[in-house]
Amino acid sequence: MIDLRGYGWLLWQGAGQTVLVGLASMAIAMILGLLGAWGKLSRSKTGQTLTGLYTTIIRGIPELVIILLIYYGVPTLIQDIAEWLDAETVVDFNPFLAGVATIGFIYGAFSTEVFRGSFLAVPKGQMEAARAVGMSRVQGFFRILLPQMWRFALPGLGNVWMVLIKATALVSVIQLPELMRNADIAARSTKLPFTCYFAASLLYLGITIVSILIQKKAEAWANRGIRKA
């Protein structure tokens, strides 16, 4: 790794923060995705409507706008409401928590569609067979549907992760010291913008390559025992 006049360590530190933000955000996105898919596939009109609005609105607004709205807009809104109620309060979101929650919330909408398609890809006869042998709906879900669903979901979740890890660069606008933020600091301090940003791009590429290798292994594990046509 190029020393970058003593700032090389800052990029490595930022890369670690980027991976941490990505993993935490992906965990939230998967949880929201499962809940969203359940809502879309449920028989409840309210659940279908709410999850439909969630995926439509979130996927229709740029990620940067949502990040700025939550980190800068929400605290200001809360303080304005408190002032209107003759109460004084100061709201200051933690950049890491705000960034993770926002990115997870955004990509939960994309994960919802991945999980919905994966659940539909499992043959209906599987659940019918589970009911026939005496399993309850909940037992059938956890023992039959959920394990088979992952085989179909992994490729889509891998794509969500690839986009999500690059989207972490957007949280640099809320001063979180991830890779893009630290690369910008290094570029301004060393007067080597091309070198610093190029080094950051190589680190992002490295994260992506490692992610692809892990995804291939995960897909191979999920497809074990499946006969290929």
Rank of each mutant, 00 (worst) to 15 (best):
G39M: 13
I81T: 13
Q126C: 07
D92A: 14
I209P: 04
W9A: 13
I81G: 07
G47M: 14
I185C: 00
T46Y: 08
G225L: 06
Y197M: 04
S201A: 15
F119R: 04
T195A: 15
K124H: 10
T190F: 03
D92L: 13
V171C: 04
S201Q: 02
G33N: 07
L205I: 09
E83D: 14
N94W: 03
A187D: 02
V163C: 05
T190C: 01
T102C: 05
M127G: 08
T168Q: 05
T112R: 09
I209C: 01
V90Q: 12
Q175R: 03
L213G: 00
T46M: 09
R116D: 03
L213Y: 14
L85H: 06
R116F: 04
N159E: 07
S118C: 05
V122D: 13
I106S: 05
F93N: 04
A167R: 05
A167V: 12
R43L: 13
R224K: 15
V160R: 10
M1H: 13
I78V: 09
F119Q: 05
I226F: 14
A24Y: 01
E128K: 07
Q17C: 00
I144Q: 12
L179Y: 03
L164I: 14
L53T: 13
F141A: 06
A129H: 10
V19M: 09
L10D: 02
M26L: 15
L157W: 08
M26R: 06
R5D: 12
L154M: 10
E113Q: 14
M127R: 10
V114N: 10
F194A: 08
K191S: 11
A129Q: 10
V160Y: 05
L97F: 10
G206W: 07
K124M: 06
F152Y: 15
E113P: 00
F119L: 03
T51G: 00
T190W: 03
I207F: 11
A98F: 09
R59Q: 11
R59I: 01
V163H: 08
T190S: 05
I57Q: 04
W12M: 11
G104H: 12
Y197R: 00
I58E: 01
N159Q: 10
F115C: 02
V91S: 09
L202Q: 04
V114M: 07
S111A: 13
L77A: 15
D3W: 06
T18W: 02
G6K: 08
V122L: 12
G14Q: 03
A24S: 11
W9H: 12
V114I: 10
A15R: 02
W84M: 11
Y7I: 00
Q17R: 06
Y54K: 09
R59C: 01
Q48P: 11
I58C: 00
F119C: 02
